[in-house]
């Protein structure tokens, strides 16, 4: 099932099994879950939330300095 991930200026598409957690997807795109908070279709979700397909995750950087 396809998932779209937006992080900074990057947009990545990947496939993940149904029930994959947000944290697993963040790790899959090479980002440390400690450094972002995530919106799923515009709503803040916890890292334990699971994805069911055709979703867009927006990772917002929260570490200062870059």
């Amino acid at each position: 099932m396809p998932v779209k991930v937006l992080h900074e200026d990057l947009e990545k598409s990947l496939t993940a099994e149904k029930g994959t957690t947000v944290e697993e997807i963040i790790r899959k795109v090479g980002v440390n879950p400690e450094t972002v908070i995530t919106e799923k279709d515009g709503e803040i979700v916890s890292n334990k939330e699971t994805v069911d397909g055709d979703e867009c995750l927006h990772l917002i950087n929260v570490v200062s300095g870059g």
């Binding site: 908070i37 929260v62 570490v63």
Partner: peptide, 15 residues
């Protein structure tokens, strides 16, 4: 820091 960001966001501040 990550929790301050979430707090700010929940309080309606621009992130």
């Amino acid at each position: 820091e990550r929790e301050i960001a979430l707090y700010a966001k929940l309080k309606g501040l621009e992130l």
